[in-house]
């Protein structure tokens, strides 16, 4: 019953989202992009929020996802360009890369983990950058025709807009393309997956690792394997996100693989709140809103972003959502504590 309510609310939220942001200057295309990028942030959150390791190299999975998807469509199988194939190959490839790199990085902690993931991401960046014949070098891959989505009985062109219905202050239904519906469905699946995962024994072990690595080892968990699994899942989600972004934009460039991109995921997740299900969505949405809407009003939007980021780290270590969420718990604990104190007094 609780599950039904949860999913009903999630779906309702996703349906309303592109219209709700309209009056504050948002637009349907932005909603689509926010959802796509949020998937990668959620993957990153699995690492920082649950496994407690800071990856500074998520851009490699994001960028590779985009490159593999676009290359599948334009170079590997141009004759049989297929949307599902592009997604599948990207996720498979990125997962394999994540497993390979993960095997090496999971042994490290803290700053060493961050630096090693950064080093691998830089390697991937330069390989892609220099492999001009395949990747287009600095120009990247441009002007790919994204294939329609085959559904067996029919196939859907995701760039088709919905029929025109005037929604007053909330814009027009035709602002929205099928892309949004598709990405929203993917988002529901990712949320369901993430929720199940973090509530399973796997999630609990990860949290235990974060809290106290030595004790977890002592209890008998093979920490490396859990961390590796988390790294691979985060990689796969990030690859999926990159692939969707690539197919949505129909282009990608080496920028998708840079340290800046990796840093963005860090900012999104930390601002929204790690260790929470919807924190990454909130953080990604908030910062991308700054970047896309507030940027029209002031050039200082990135300064606002930086100040917001520092303020969150200093004042709200759990992120915006993490802090909001924990508040009632603490209050409850405080109530119990004070109740106990009262009972002690004669």
């Amino acid at each position: 019953m609780k599950d039904v309510r949860f999913y009903a609310l999630t779906v309702a939220g996703l349906v309303l989202f592109p219209f709700v942001i309209h009056p504050i200057g948002g637009y349907a295309g932005l909603a689509t992009q926010i959802l796509i990028v949020s998937i990668a942030t959620m993957g990153f959150n699995l690492l920082l929020g649950y496994a407690g390791v800071l990856s500074y190299g998520q851009a490699m999975f994001y960028g590779l996802g985009a490159y593999v998807a676009l290359l599948t469509v334009s170079k590997f199988f141009p004759e049989h360009a297929n949307f599902w194939l592009a997604l599948l190959l990207s996720i498979a490839f990125v997962t394999i890369v994540a497993l390979a790199i993960g095997t090496l990085v999971v042994r490290l902690y803290g700053i060493y983990f961050a630096l090693l993931t950064l080093a691998f991401a830089q390697m991937v960046f330069f390989v892609v950058f220099k492999w001009t014949g395949l990747t287009g070098g600095d120009d990247g891959i441009q002007g790919v025709t994204a294939p329609t989505v085959p559904l067996g009985f029919t196939s859907i062109d995701l760039t088709t807009p919905f029929p025109a219905v005037d929604l007053g202050p909330f814009g027009n239904l035709s602002d929205l393309h099928y892309w949004y519906a598709f990405v929203a469905i993917v988002m529901v699946l990712v949320i369901a997956f993430f929720r199940t995962l973090t509530r399973s024994q796997f999630g609990e072990v990860l949290s235990a690792i974060r809290e106290n690595e030595e004790r977890s080892t002592f209890v008998g968990f093979d920490i490396s394997r859990y961390k590796l699994a988390a790294f691979a899942i985060a990689g796969a989600l990030t690859g999926l996100s990159g692939a969707l972004r690539g197919l949505y934009e129909t282009s990608t460039a080496p920028d998708s693989l840079t340290v800046d991109t990796s840093g963005n995921f860090v900012i999104y997740a930390v601002v929204g709140g790690v260790q929470t299900l919807f924190g990454p969505l909130l953080g990604t949405g908030l910062i991308m809103y700054l970047q896309n809407v507030v940027s029209a009003k002031t050039d200082a939007w990135r300064l606002i972003e930086g100040v917001l980021f520092v303020a969150v780290i200093v004042f709200l270590p759990g992120g915006i959502l993490g802090t909001l969420k924990r508040k009632p718990k603490r209050t409850a604990r405080a109530i119990v504590a004070s109740a106990l104190r009262t009972s002690e007094t004669p």
Partner: peptide
């Protein structure tokens, strides 16, 4: 407890300010 309430206010205030600043955008 004080700190927590302070944080709650901080967030609420921040959100309200953000909303007020950009509500006019459309």
């Amino acid at each position: 407890d004080d700190l927590t309430i302070g944080r709650g206010r901080f967030i609420a205030g921040g959100l309200a300010a953000t909303a007020a600043t950009f509500a006019s955008i459309n």
